[in-house]
Design a protein around this nucleic acid. Sequence first.
DNA 1: TGAACACGTTTTGTATGCAATATGTATTTT
DNA 2: AAAATACATATTGCATACAAAACGTGTTCA
Lengths: 236, 236
Amino acid sequence: MPDSTPSPKDTCYQALKTAILTLELQPGADLDEASLSAEFGLSRTPLREVLRRLAGEGYVDLRQNRGARVSEMSHTTLRDFFLAAPMIYGAILRLAAENATPAQIEKLKTTQARFRKVLQQGSARDRALMNNRFHEITGEMAGNVYLLPSFQRLLIDHARISMTFYRPRDEAMARNVGEAADQHDQIIAAIEAGDADKAAALAIDHWNLSRHRIELFVMPGGLDLPLGAPPRAVTA
Amino acid sequence: MPDSTPSPKDTCYQALKTAILTLELQPGADLDEASLSAEFGLSRTPLREVLRRLAGEGYVDLRQNRGARVSEMSHTTLRDFFLAAPMIYGAILRLAAENATPAQIEKLKTTQARFRKVLQQGSARDRALMNNRFHEITGEMAGNVYLLPSFQRLLIDHARISMTFYRPRDEAMARNVGEAADQHDQIIAAIEAGDADKAAALAIDHWNLSRHRIELFVMPGGLDLPLGAPPRAVTA
DNA sequence: TGAACACGTTTTGTATGCAATATGTATTTT
DNA sequence: AAAATACATATTGCATACAAAACGTGTTCA
C-alpha cells in the first residue's frame, strides 16, 4: 500500500508549487533557505533539493551564490506565451484524443466536476488550481515525453496569468469563465470520442477565450466607446 | 571578468551531460553517488544537486530511495520523438529567423564551420556534440522560454538517436550526413535573411533526413531486393 | 560631500556523520 | 527443493557544522 503520510519534503514541494501558481508567492519573490526550511520542518539540504527540482520545472530561478527567486513574468511573457500555447496544447489534445485510457477519462471527468463546483462556490485560487489540474491530466493522456516539459511550463504561467487578469465581480468575466467550463466539457467529449481534429480545434478556441479574458481585463468597458474615450470603470 | 577556472560542480555537470549525449553513459545506466563524487572530487551533497538538475533537464531519472539512472530510451521513444520534433523545431527555426541577433548568427556560423571540420576529421562523438551545439544555438535565437524545455529534451535524444543509428563506414550514411551539413547552411541562410517560412520548412526537411538515416540503418542494402530476400550486408 | 574601502553580518555552498531504506545472502521452514 | 524470512551490507536521505561568498554599514580619504 502507498505511504499515507507524505514526507515533509513532498509537503514543501507541493506547498511552494501551489503558492507560486496562485501568486501567493509573487514572481521575483526571494526564497530564503533558512526561513523556508524552518517553516516546513526540514533541514536546508533537502530544501535545496526541492528548490533545484522546482527550478528544473520552471517554478523558480536559481542564481549562483544568491537566493532562489520565483520565476519572473516579464513584459515579453504574454507574447511568447500566446505564440507557443496554441501549438503545444493543440498537439497535446490531439494526442490525448488518440491515446487516453478510460481510467484517465474518468479522472478528467471527476476533475471537471470539481472545477464546476469551485466555479460556483470556490475562491479564485481554487479555480486556478482545479483548472490547472484539468489541463495537467490532458497532458498525462497525451503521454509524449517531449511535449510535456513545455506544456508544464505553459501551465505554470497559464495559472499565474489567469490569476493576474481576473476580476471576480466583472459580469463579462464571469460569462467568460463559464464558457471556459463549457469548453472543458467539449474537450472531454472530443477525447472520449477519439476525435483528434476536434480536440485540436478546441485547444485553439480555449486559448482564444483566454486571450479574450485578458482583453476584458485591459478594456473593462468593452469596445463600444467613442474613439479616444477613457475607460468607463477601473475598479481594481 | 568571468571566472576562468570552472568549479568541480560545473565540470561534473558538463561531463555527465556529454557522457550521456554520446552514449558513453548508456540509457538506464546506474549513477552511483559515492563513486561519482569521488571521481569528480566533490562531496555527495553538491553531486546530488547536479543529479537533480540533470533530472530536471531530462538527462537522468531519479527514483525514491534508489539510485539515479540515465534516462531510458524505450521502444516508444522514436515514435514520440518524430511526432514532436518537426513541430517544435519548425516553431524554433521560425522564431529564430524572426529574432536572431547578428552576434548569434555569427556564433551559429562559427559552430557550423566547426561541425564541417569534425565531419571530415572528427569522431562520431565530436559530430554529435557539435551538431547538438548548432541546434542549441538556434534555440537561443528563438528565445521563447515556453518552447525551449521541450526543444532541449528533444536535442538530448536527437544526439542519442544519432549515435545509435550511425554506421560510419556506410557510404549512403556518409552522403546523408553531408546533406545534413548542407541543410545547416541553408538554415543559416534562411535565418540571416529573416525568412521564417523557409526556416520552418527546412526544419521539416532536417527531420525527414534524420528519419531517413534511421531507415538506412535498419535496411542497409536498400529496397532494391527481391521480396523476402535477406539483407545484403550487415557490417556492424 | 562623495567615493572608495574595510569590516561585520547574513546567506549560500560544501563536507561529514548518522539515520533510514533497499539489496543480497544465508538460514529456516514447509 | 522451493519459498519465506531474518540478518548483514550497501546505498540513499537528512541534519549539522563549517567554509566561502555576497551584502550592509560605518569609516576613511580625497
